[in-house]
């Protein structure tokens, strides 16, 4: 039977991170999961809201949770690490403060219960994808990779309680299952520069540059991420990174869902890798075994198409 889950894509996944959305959705289809978008969802407010207006930064995510609740969703998948963070922090703050909850309910004009389960993309993969992976895996991810978690997936640890805050492992474990070798490196949870991407691009070039340099120094051939902001900064901001590093770097940045999708035989249209600015060139996979079905003609050479 098809499993049904609530889905909050968030604004990035409709724009700059379209390929993240494509890969999450294709992967879910491949694994017989139906992701149902929260009807009429709004922006979570991201960094801007909590920088400028604390109340607003709690009210915007609350409206999303209330919309999910209104549609009887008990579990929602939130692939964007920033949205996941804002929604989780909001739920935490409201749980411990009834007065705040009342204020928020009044502002959104909807009742709110705070028991919705919010899953980040790794939790979603662990729970719904991994158990089926042995059956669906058709290719080995034959590369050395750097798993980069960023800030928002693991911090603040006392609220998110996800993985280890200093040296998280879950993404590494997933990549190892696909056959990749993961590097041990100290930049797993360093900040990429996040929200300063547009307003202080040179700082993002520096912070993200250090991340890319360290990954390259340790011979990684791809960086694996689970956050659209990390991806935007490491991929789209590559000119600023290269300028900081004073060299041309070509290491591609893949979403974890793209990596799994490719290993399960999805093509580049389904995984959206063709949308990357730093191209994913060459063969990342060796074909290991042919799964029972579903693999007629999926050549997994990822090549430049534009």
């Amino acid at each position: 039977m098809k499993k049904k889950l609530g889905f909050y894509p968030g604004c990035s996944l409709e724009g700059t991170a379209k390929e993240y959305s494509e890969s999450v959705v294709s992967l879910s289809e491949q694994f017989d999961i139906e992701l149902k978008q929260i009807p009429d969802w709004n922006c979570c407010g991201a960094t801007a809201a909590h920088n400028l207006n604390k109340t607003l930064s709690l009210v915007l995510p609350s409206r999303i949770l209330a919309q999910a609740q209104k549609n009887e969703m008990k579990e929602i998948v939130v692939p964007c690490a920033a949205c996941y963070n804002r929604l989780s922090v909001t739920q935490y703050e409201l749980l411990k403060n009834d007065q705040l909850k009342a204020t928020v309910e009044q502002a959104i004009d909807m009742p709110l219960n705070t028991s919705i389960r919010i899953l980040n993309v790794i939790q979603f993969i662990q729970e719904y994808i991994l158990p089926e992976i042995p059956e669906k895996l058709s290719h080995t991810f034959d590369k050395k990779v750097a798993c980069y978690y960023g800030c928002l997936l693991v911090r603040p640890h006392n609220i998110l309680k996800f993985d280890r805050p200093e040296s998280p492992q879950f993404m590494d474990e997933i990549m190892q299952m696909l056959g990749a070798e993961t590097i041990d490196w100290p930049f797993k949870t360093e900040c990429c520069g996040a929200g300063l991407s547009v307003s202080r691009t040179e700082l993002v070039g520096k912070l993200s540059g250090k991340i890319v340099r360290e990954a390259l120094d340790r011979k990684a051939e791809a960086i694996i991420v689970a956050c659209p902001m990390c991806h935007a900064n490491l991929d789209m901001r590559r000119p600023a990174i290269d300028q900081y590093l004073e060299m041309k770097t070509e290491i591609p940045v893949l979403y974890i869902t793209q990596a799994i999708g490719m290993a399960c035989g999805l093509n580049e249209r389904q995984t959206g890798t063709r949308r990357h600015l730093v191209k994913v060139i060459g063969n990342y996979f060796t074909k290991t075994r042919i799964p029972v079905e579903n693999n007629e003609n999926n050549p997994i050479t990822v090549e430049e198409i534009i």
Partner: peptide
């Protein structure tokens, strides 16, 4: 730089409920 960016971002949400890159930039 930083403050106007945040303000533009919130303005976008106020008008459309979501962030929309072209309008934001």
């Amino acid at each position: 730089n930083i403050i106007p960016f945040h303000q533009s971002f919130l303005d976008m949400i106020r008008f459309t409920g979501r962030s929309y890159e072209i309008g934001l930039i």
